[in-house]
């Protein structure tokens, strides 16, 4: 059971969270400009790397807020927890400092 540092609540047990899969998959600007194959990419296809993976979690049994994490899918180590549009370029193992409530999850 992983210990996950919610950006708003701090470290909590994995059981309080739900997994949200790959992060930074934006809803297409204009879905109708996409052909079926491109649309299928958005709907069904996700990266599945072995190693660091930018992914989403939601603290569903806590503050109910979504956030992003850079986590190693082999070691399960959380390399970073963040709310921005891109993962911080840190490889530090320290969890991101809890941010004040009210800061927006920007994605």
């Amino acid at each position: 059971m992983q210990l996950i540092a919610c950006p708003w609540c701090g470290q909590r047990e994995e059981t309080e969270f739900h997994y949200g899969g790959q992060a930074h998959i934006a809803y297409p600007e204009d879905p109708y400009a996409l052909d079926d194959e491109q649309w299928a990419q958005y709907v069904f296809f996700r990266d599945n790397p072995k190693g660091p993976f930018a992914e989403r979690w939601v603290h569903s049994a806590g503050c109910r807020r979504w956030f992003n994490a850079l986590r190693d899918t082999v070691t399960h180590e959380f390399l970073a927890v963040y709310t921005g549009a891109t993962p911080p370029s840190t490889t530090s193992t320290a969890p991101a400092a809890p941010q004040r409530k009210g800061q927006e999850a920007s994605r």
Partner: peptide
């Protein structure tokens, strides 16, 4: 509720 929050917060 989680579905709605997901769209609201992340999209």
């Amino acid at each position: 509720l989680e579905w709605m929050e997901e769209w609201l917060q992340t999209e």
